[in-house]
Design a protein around this nucleic acid. Structure first.
Lengths: 218, 218
DNA sequence: CATCATCGGCTAACACTGTTAGTCGAACAG
DNA sequence: CTGTTCGACTAACAGTGTTAGCCGATGATG
């Protein structure tokens, strides 16, 4: 775990490898501490076995490094959601079950990587870089949710399919808020994930048009 | 706006005044920048006209200062909510109108003080101080919301009053999530508060048991 | 083969930061 | 008149992000 004292420079084309090592160390530190200012370039350098300014070959500055980590986290969450939905569908789950699978994947991610999840929504996203270059990764997340609700409505209540976007926003924002609350609240709730699940069910029943019968699969 | 060069020390009993000045400067800087690490004790000292270590007479460290600012912000938001609800009641508003007044006060606060609002939920709350000493101020917020939903249910659907806590959580977390999303999203939505209001109405209609008729007062 | 640019990385240094230790004048209490 | 406390200050330490400049090895090019 301590700093490996020596390090052979990477071969000519393999400079990219160091970038990955830096990213990995940064991700781990951010997940452990949860605070951006607890992440120091010198600390990363110590772990990876390089000197601090060497990181600037691969990242324009510290904010760029953090942004890159969070970008990857956004993408990981999005694919976890869609994979959960798809595999539930492949297993023959009903629409309600697919939504629940997606919701569960989202909750799992937020609970298993709590600090990174919190950071995703608490950091100003790269305030210097040209803002119109590509859309904020949070847009991807929104898309994932409206996809989920749209697929549900398409099967359960096709006539109300126009509400898919609103429902997607409601579902996502409410879940996010629940998780923030749950993370921030002091001890009694902190270890008790079941109250989160119950809140989820209560929310889904209120928001989504009722299916044939809420399948008791969880 | 620049540093006032001289400053007469406060009289014997009036050391508290400096504390308020520090708090004021810190609040302003946090609201302007929105990032904790953009707030420097030396910067505050420069504005107030003191030297940096003098702040340690009034705050144990930087985290304590930030916590104090956010504590005050929590309280301000809570009273804004309850005041809005009470004055709506005093004006003879129906239950639905009172809920809307509370919601509007919450939105106003989050939009008018966006950086501070964001900081409230993005900071680990004083991780060093004995955690059981007093409850997290977020609990106050939760209480305010369950009070609101309980008052609504008591009048509109007394039989479902046991759902008040769940509904309060749903309402609050969903609103918070909407605001986070709205703040984070890129430009087109950013200036457009009406879509937030519409989202709110859509959410309230879905979550709250219907009243006699949604009053068009807004 | 010799040259030269580029890659991968390092050292030194600057301007800051939070925080601690120790000091100093003025005001009040005994 | 003496001591203590209050309200502040200066000096200093360790650590930070970031920039400028250097250096050895590698690869392409003449």
């Amino acid at each position: 775990m301590k700093s490996q004292v020596k390090r052979v420079p990477n071969a000519r084309g393999q400079g990219e490898r160091l970038r990955q090592e830096i990213l990995g160390a940064a991700t781990r530190i951010l997940e452990e501490t949860g605070r951006e200012d607890a992440l120091s370039l010198r600390g990363i350098a110590r772990e990876v076995g390089i000197s601090a300014p060497s990181a600037y070959r691969h990242f324009k500055n510290k904010a760029d490094l953090v942004t890159t980590v969070l970008d990857a986290t956004y993408r990981a969450l999005a694919v976890a959601m869609s994979e959960a939905g798809e595999s539930a569908a492949a297993a023959g789950a009903d629409p309600w079950g697919r939504v629940r699978a997606t919701v569960t994947a989202y909750r799992r991610f937020a609970i298993d990587k709590p600090r990174r999840y919190r950071l995703m929504f608490s950091l100003e996203y790269e305030p210097d870089r040209p803002p119109a270059t590509d859309h904020h990764p949070i847009g991807t997340m929104l898309q994932a949710w409206t996809d989920t609700t749209d697929a549900y409505l398409a099967e359960v209540a096709p006539s109300r399919r126009s509400e898919a976007q609103d429902l997607g926003i409601h579902l996502w924002t409410a879940l996010h808020g629940q998780l923030v609350l749950w993370h921030t609240l002091p001890s009694p709730a902190a270890g008790n994930e079941t109250i989160l699940i119950e809140l989820e069910e209560s929310l889904l029943r209120r928001l989504l048009p009722a299916p044939q019968a809420p399948s008791p699969t969880e």
